[in-house]
Design a protein around this nucleic acid. Structure first.
Length: 260
DNA sequence: ATGCCGACAGGATGTCGA
């Protein structure tokens, strides 16, 4: 089973780009983030025409997550538990059948958290703690699971072109990095780290200041596998070339192959 | 230099992203 995650930065404006990538990459399951549309506005037709079922948790203008799956999904559950009154559409979970078993899939869009020292940063850390709690609960199920999406956290200095330039950014704060490490420490595997020894692999390049041309990127989109999924990890990659196309998202797809 | 770019809502320009 090939699974992938992609922050599309508006699904409506990215339909052609998404269809082109799906045709070439042929993933069985895709977690999408930053739909920037309501459930009603989500363009299901072009994806259904490619054979995908769509589970959408949208919101007007901001956020929004979805899971596309060739096989029908079960137990589709939007919203991250906890966070009383939190109405941001940043999480959706579903069960997807594979050839040999099922995989629990989560599409994650963690808060940006800038600027630091504000309620936004507090919200980010609280949200990541809620995610850790959910990740711990999923581990107890002892089943293959992939928690994938835009974590908005740069894990280490090796995951950014110039660590100094990000020292005051919410994505690279010690508290943010620690929150991600706490999830990994539960027993989750970062697929790109597991499959690639070389540093400076990126998933996001800002639209501004020629970041793409200068390869000024950061790695913030991650696939985290439960032990039962990591046992079946075959390969993982980043479809970097997608960033060089017409009207690109500022993020690119991250994928992995599971023998499930 | 805290903007550079891009999407959205709305109908000008402010908000948000990372």
């Amino acid at each position: 089973m090939k699974i992938a995650t992609w922050n599309v930065n508006s699904i409506r404006i990215r339909v052609d780009a998404a269809v082109a990538w799906l045709k070439e990459a042929q993933p069985d399951v895709v977690a999408l983030q930053e739909l920037k549309c309501t459930d009603d506005q989500f363009p299901k037709e072009p994806f259904e025409a490619l054979g995908y079922n769509c589970a959408v948790h949208g919101q007007k203008t901001y956020n929004g997550v979805a899971i596309l799956s060739k096989r029908p999904m079960e137990d589709v559950t939007p919203r991250l538990p906890g966070g009383d009154g939190d109405d941001h559409a940043r999480y959706i979970e579903a069960i997807v059948p594979g050839e040999k078993g099922v995989v629990r899939i989560a599409s994650i869009y963690a808060p940006n958290g800038n600027p630091i020292g504000t309620d936004k940063f507090t919200y980010k850390l609280g949200w990541l703690e809620r995610l850790r709690a959910r990740a711990a609960a999923i581990l107890k199920l002892e089943e293959p699971a992939a928690l994938m999406g835009d974590y908005n956290v740069i894990p280490t200095p090796d995951d950014v072109y110039d660590p100094k330039a990000w020292l005051k950014d919410a994505l690279f704060q010690p508290e943010s990095r620690s929150a991600l490490r706490r999830i990994e420490a539960l027993g989750y595997t970062d697929t790109i780290r597991a499959c690639h020894a070389e540093p400076h692999l990126y998933t996001f390049w800002d639209y501004q200041a020629g970041a793409w041309q200068k390869d000024h990127g950061i790695r913030i989109d991650h696939i985290m596998l439960s032990p039962q999924a990591a046992d079946h990890l075959k390969s993982s990659g980043i479809d970097k070339h997608v960033r060089g196309r017409e009207k690109p998202s500022d993020h690119v797809p991250v994928w992995c192959e599971l023998e499930i």
